[in-house]
Design a protein around this nucleic acid. Structure first.
Lengths: 248, 248
DNA sequence: TCGGCGTGTTGACACAAATCAAACGGCTAC
DNA sequence: GTAGCCGTTTGATTTGTGTCAACACGCCGA
């Protein structure tokens, strides 16, 4: 009955069991202090789950918007394409984070979301979410906070792109990843990059060669140990100093 | 009873009369198709109005978040400050646009909002907005769209900062302003910049000298006529071509 | 096991924008 | 009216990052 190979897992008793109420990412996706009853309601909100393989699109720019997505496991990037072919990665998302809020305004997605590793997401039909957040105040508040957090995050990226130099951008990027991995119970100092140098560069407004050089420089200076996509941070304080200190 | 010089206008019959139901910016701030009854409810949501003089702060980073603000008239900028003193303008806002959504996530504002000319704003207590948007579905949907639009706008700025060259950024900036003025019934081709070259530069991730040079270049090339802060666009198509064509 | 391709590194050079510096112009205040 | 200041323009020079190119590495499939 439960077919792991299928990309859409139908809403059955067995899948429901593994829904929000049992999910260890609950504290990332949902507000605190919900009653049993409310959690049960929210469980029913998550219609289906979907598995995506590496490089598979969750949605594409131009597609109709119907749902937002909570990442259950895996890693994603979102990117925007300009008419003339230029594109930019607008974000990297990991477990417990929400995708698709760009689509709310125009009923159409404005960016692409691509899995950077095999991933699993929860589909949250938006009409259903709105309905429920009219009933459950804590859910409403939580959703507003999630959207607002996205706005604040974007401001941070604008800051990075507008005022920082290449090495500062990369340092900020690594520290941000480290902090997010930590929040998920992983090592703050050692992790695996799911994206290529080119994708990092696109996100940071740099060319891949510049990213590569910055990695090398950080390694020379003893801030990190790089081995392909495996990163070990040796001197977090040093990286942080790069950011705040800057050219005096 | 009605004292225009005071910065806070109390909620009286006379001010209520000039509230949402009578506001000519209604189609920007509110959803279509509300009933008389609903509009009356929303009227009551807008607690007070406030006048701000040029250079006055509407709110500052770190201040507690209680309300969002609809601009009734005037012009604002928002900016973020880094610990090391660097700052960046994250946006310019004009009549009919909403300020303050950055504060929702952390109960605290994360940026400063400053009036760039004498302005008037409507204070929308957030608790009240959430309450009402649990009752009026169209209001809920509208608010979500406004937040989402902000996210999409931010992606556009990231695109600009990450992939465009100086002249492309300025062209995009001018075209965006033109389009927004048009939507408000002003001339698409002639307008007054409320911000300095330095503020434009901060927003576009450029130094003020670069902005100035780009303006001069656009004038030489016959795209625009610049006289201080007064801008006349002579060749919109030319500016647009700068964006899409780019270095072949 | 080997070959090939995608990905990453490193070097030489070019170029766009930053920086430093000076002078100008238009406001505002006296 | 005029002095002074802020904002702007313009020029000369520096510098960080992009560009072009060659090469190295690791992974996958044959």
């Amino acid at each position: 009955m439960h077919k792991p190979n299928q990309s859409i897992i139908p809403l059955t008793l067995s899948t429901l069991k593994a829904a929000c109420s049992q999910c260890n990412l609950r504290e990332l996706c949902l507000p605190y202090g919900l009653s049993e009853d409310e959690i049960e309601q929210i469980d029913s909100m998550v219609g289906v789950r979907r598995r995506l393989k590496r490089q598979q699109h969750l949605y594409r720019a131009g597609e109709g918007f119907e749902a937002i997505y909570a990442i259950r496991s895996g890693f994603f990037k979102t990117d925007v394409l300009l008419e003339d072919g230029r594109d930019q990665v607008t974000g990297f998302q990991m477990a417990g984070e929400i995708l698709g809020m760009d689509g709310i305004s125009g009923e159409t997605h404005t960016c692409n979301a691509v899995a950077l590793e095999d991933s699993e997401i929860c589909v949250i039909p938006f009409a259903h979410l709105e309905h429920l957040s009219r009933e459950i105040q804590a859910l409403q508040r939580h959703f507003h906070q999630v959207m607002s957090r996205e706005i604040v995050r974007d401001h941070g990226v604008m800051m990075l792109l507008g005022t920082m130099r290449a090495e500062e951008r990369l340092a900020a990027f690594l520290l941000n990843l480290s902090q997010r991995f930590t929040a998920r119970g992983y090592s703050p100092a050692e992790f695996h990059l799911r994206m290529t140098r080119d994708e990092i560069g696109s996100y940071l407004g740099l060319k891949l060669e510049t990213v590569s050089r910055a990695f090398s420089r950080f390694q020379e200076d003893g801030f990190i140990a790089v081995q392909q996509k495996h990163i070990r941070i040796l001197d977090i304080a040093g990286l942080k100093a790069l950011l705040t200190h800057q050219a005096i």
